[in-house]
Design a protein around this nucleic acid. Structure first.
Length: 476
RNA sequence: CGGGGUGUAGCGCAGUUUGGUAGCGCGCGUGGUUUGGGACCACGAAGUCGACAGUUCGAGUCUGUCCACCCCGACCA
């Protein structure tokens, strides 16, 4: 632990893995591809859950729970869905010492079983809309896994709604994309590009998929949340039908949307630096770490008395932790920086004498982030600093993203741009053209941003007329 | 599944070429000195050397078979 972290610029992947372990976010489990989320990492997930759950409730959704195991036949009812998920299913074939009559799939996502249930619940237009979210775990047998970014089992929320009209379902899909965007930008300080997925990148079974795409510190893209308009595909597969106001039988229109523990990986890779993790104050489990400094016993009691007073004054205002470990201050400074705590307070004998403390900001590297603050003003200064850190982190990430997003003028330029950043280019929308670009550059269409310049251009690859610009990048 | 690599203490590794008593660094425990940017000293605990079989007086080291994991590709929130 005394060793320095591998510098981010030297080996990004190694840097990432070291942070996850040293900040005690997660650890490898004995089961291939799955991870143990440790208390600090789980506390971060709880903060993410709280931020999202609040927004879900505010937009009229309720939480519910659906079973882990799904009859195999359910998956097969929607053609694209089964094709998309079959390769990565974990299947239970035996239980209670006997072979099961029908194998049970460990859910990779719950559209099917929820579709089945909605078919039971929805009979009339009066039963709509159904607005349900589910916090759970899913299993997808991925071939290559990485802590938080892609694990065989992961935690997420999946929202599933059913509506009477196409318009209403489409509005819901877009509303939830907005919710994700708002959460990412304002809570996680992760600037994202909300947009539509190309046909080849959309969710298996969806009519249209939307995504929020973020740029990581190595300039690769991470899909950080998705919202799908499922049309009537699942309603038809599972018979979600209702009688409308005109007494006519109609299929419902459904949506689904999810955001996973992958977001934690995104936060690490967007904000982290050579000192370690850097957490946005809104999500940080510990916002303020207090490090008392003393030599003698006499100093200890003077310092601790002040620390206790200040801590109790701040306890209702910020999430804080007093560091009573018997390590050197230097070790503790580095340790809190590794864990990404946004603000650190140092209290030593000199501070006690002067009635001040030292506040050190995590977002400003090294000693430049330190300032002396009068003890009397902490109740105002600490929240103000946390707010400043939150917005500064968003600004740094946004500037980074913007300065590494280019609009190449030619395909040659495009190829060099996507080697090290995002390309924003006119694209014809053709799947063949998209596949050729991927083959050529390993860059994929990340999304077709909602925000478009208008007008038209020519496709960056094939030169055909194009009416929309797309973001291309290498992705996780 | 294709290509490459690695399995020796909790972690990172040396030792394997040339068979001969299991090593180093970090971490961990105890005691002491320390403490305003990753402290130091002393003592100590910790290993079926990935598994199985073979060669040999003797195998971490040689031979064979198997297994696991990691990296690159295909798949993907």
């Amino acid at each position: 632990m005394a060793d320095k972290l591998t510098p981010r610029g030297e080996d990004f992947s190694k840097w990432y893995n070291e942070i996850v372990q040293r900040a005690e976010l997660a650890d490898y489990s004995p089961v291939r591809g799955s991870m143990v989320i440790r208390p600090y990492g789980y506390a971060l997930w709880e903060a993410i859950q709280a931020g999202l759950d609040r927004r879900f409730k505010a937009t009229g959704h309720q939480n519910a729970y659906f079973p882990l195991l799904i009859p195999m036949s359910f998956l097969q009812k929607e053609k694209e869905h089964v094709e998309g998920f079959s390769p990565e299913l974990a299947v239970v074939t035996h239980a209670g010492g006997e072979q099961l009559e029908e194998p049970l799939v460990v859910r990779p996502t719950s559209e099917t079983i929820i579709g089945y249930m909605y078919a039971q619940w929805v009979k009339s237009y009066r039963d709509l809309p159904v607005l349900i979210n589910c916090w759970n775990n899913v299993v997808r047998w991925e071939l290559r896994t990485r802590l938080f970014l892609r694990t065989a089992e992961f935690l997420w929320q999946e929202g599933h709604t059913a509506h009477a009209t196409r318009e209403e379902a489409e509005a819901e899909t877009r509303q939830m994309l907005d919710v994700y965007t708002d959460f990412a930008v304002n809570d996680a300080a992760v600037p994202v590009i909300p947009g539509r997925k190309s046909d080849s990148e959309k969710f298996a079974g969806a009519v249209r998929s939307y995504t929020i795409e973020a740029m990581m510190g190595d300039k690769k893209a991470l899909q950080s949340g998705t919202s799908h308009f499922l049309g009537q595909n699942f309603a038809k597969a599972f018979d979600i039908k209702f009688l409308d106001r005109n007494n006519e039988l109609q299929y419902a229109w459904t949506t689904s949307w999810g955001l996973s523990t992958r977001m934690i990986g995104g936060i690490i890779m967007v904000h982290g630096d050579d000192q370690g993790l850097k957490l946005p104050p809104r999500l940080a489990p510990i916002q303020l770490a207090i490090v008392p400094i003393f030599k003698t016993d006499a100093e200890r009691s003077r310092v601790m008395a002040v620390v206790e007073t200040l801590a109790s004054r701040l306890a209702g205002i910020v999430r804080l932790k007093i560091d009573t470990r018997e390590e050197t201050p230097g070790f503790k400074f580095n340790d809190w920086e590794m864990r990404g705590v946004p603000l650190r307070m140092e209290v030593g004998p000199k501070d006690v004498d002067k009635g001040t403390v030292v506040l050190a900001r995590r977002d400003v590297p090294g000693r430049d982030g330190k300032s002396f603050v009068p003890q009397d003003s902490l109740a105002e200064a600490v929240p103000a600093l946390l707010a400043a850190i939150q917005s500064n982190m968003l600004k740094i990430a946004t500037d980074f993203r913007n300065s590494n997003t280019h609009e190449p003028k030619s395909y040659d330029e495009f190829k060099s741009v996507v080697e090290d950043g995002f390309a924003r280019s006119w694209w014809c929308g053709d799947a063949q053209c998209e596949a050729e670009i991927k083959e050529d550059t390993k860059a994929t269409t990340r999304c077709i941003p909602l925000e478009q310049p208008g007008g038209s251009g020519t496709c960056v690859h094939c030169g055909k007329p194009a009416t929309e610009m797309a973001i291309f990048a290498k992705a996780y």
